[in-house]
Amino acid sequence: MTTANKPAAPNYLPMLLAIGAFSFVVGGAVTYQIVKLTGGQTAPLAETSMPETASPEVTRAEAPTTDVSSLINGLDLQSAATALIVVEDKPAFKPPQPETILEQSSLTALKQGVLSGVLEVGTTDDDRLALTSTDGSFDMENAKSLIAQAASNGALTVPEGLDTEAGDLDRNTLLLAVVQQSLEAGNKREQDAARNLREQAFKSSIAQTTAINGARYYTVKPGDSLAYISLQFYGSPSAYIEIFQANRDTLTSPDQIFIGQKLLIPSV
């Protein structure tokens, strides 16, 4: 069922890159000719020839990347951390436009990874749910430190429920939440990928509950955040609010839970 919904890996990527490279050469040559003709008016003409390019620092030098994973692995921390917030307003992924391939940031690389099936929600070595690289090509630690940096320098506002019982930032779940939310706000294909992530998380969760008078209770474990508990039972970190509302008598804040605490898990 999950495999059927999995978006097919885009096999047009090399083609697009070829188109991109071709148009770059042609565009470059044309621009060069125009520059030669018009002398001083370099900047406005260069802008009109690449109108969709949002980040000025994205240059041709980074473009010949052939797989999405090396996009995120090769990024420098500072520009990617700021790119994380910028990218929310950018247009959704449109396969026919070579410019989209040039538009690089960690989030688009991650989204690409999910869309191509290289990234999915799986179980880590310590049995925790997280965005994992199916072929090991994505450096998830790098992605997590990028997101943590964006959170600490204020580039990214951390949603509620992402503090662990120990008071740390739940970086695994934050990363997944950002990618999932961004996909949910995207086009049909991205929304399907977001739903697929939800189903993967829901299916692979090994969290168990205890039934008390017909209701399910979960006992908080080391490393848990409310968003992570929500991920385990609803496939999405954002449903933490359901658990928070159902436990208002014992919870004062979505960011204050403790090991051993029993939380009512409402059925959806």
Binding site: M1, E199, F202, K203, S205, I206, A207, Q208, Y234
Partner: peptide, 8 residues
């Protein structure tokens, strides 16, 4: 979760 089942 919809048609997706978890057996934990």
């Amino acid at each position: 979760l919809g048609d997706t089942l978890n057996f934990s």
